[in-house]
């Protein structure tokens, strides 16, 4: 669940964002608290808090005083938009690199994608 490629608090933020995208945390509902996250993942509460704060700064979560953190209205669309923007660099580029290593032509690549889509 926790890998070493990125700072821990960014991984926490991404996990929550994944949860929002796949519907685990619907808009206008609460996400786990800092302490819940810390205990569940066995990490320092400050690190968990930093992950949540990052999402608050991005406008994905909103703080409700005394109650906790809630998924902002429109958060899902915002995340989807951001992830689409980074989709090319994060997924397509590595795929193209691998394809060129195998010597696949663009046509062959298109054929593979079409087959997977169908």
């Amino acid at each position: 669940m926790i890998d070493d490629s990125r700072p821990l608090f960014i991984q926490i933020a991404d996990q929550i964002a994944d949860g929002i995208l796949d519907g685990t945390y619907p808009e206008d509902t609460a996400v786990p608290s800092t302490n819940e996250l810390a205990q569940h993942l066995r990490i320092n509460p400050a690190t968990a808090g930093k992950g949540l704060t990052r999402l608050v700064e991005q406008g994905v979560l909103v703080k409700r005083r005394g109650i906790g953190m809630f998924v902002a209205i429109g958060a899902r669309a915002q995340l989807a938009h951001e992830r689409t923007a980074s989709f090319a660099t994060e997924y397509v580029e590595p795929m193209l690199r691998a394809a060129s290593q195998l010597g696949l032509t663009p046509d062959q690549l298109h054929a593979i994608i079409d087959k997977e889509l169908s």
């Binding site: 800092t34 302490n35 810390a38 205990q39 066995r42 990490i43 320092n44 509460p45």
Partner: peptide, 14 residues
């Protein structure tokens, strides 16, 4: 060890 970490984090959080 996991028990230790859980107990420590729970108590520290509270």
């Amino acid at each position: 060890r996991k028990n230790f970490y859980d107990a420590l984090l729970a108590d520290y959080a509270a």
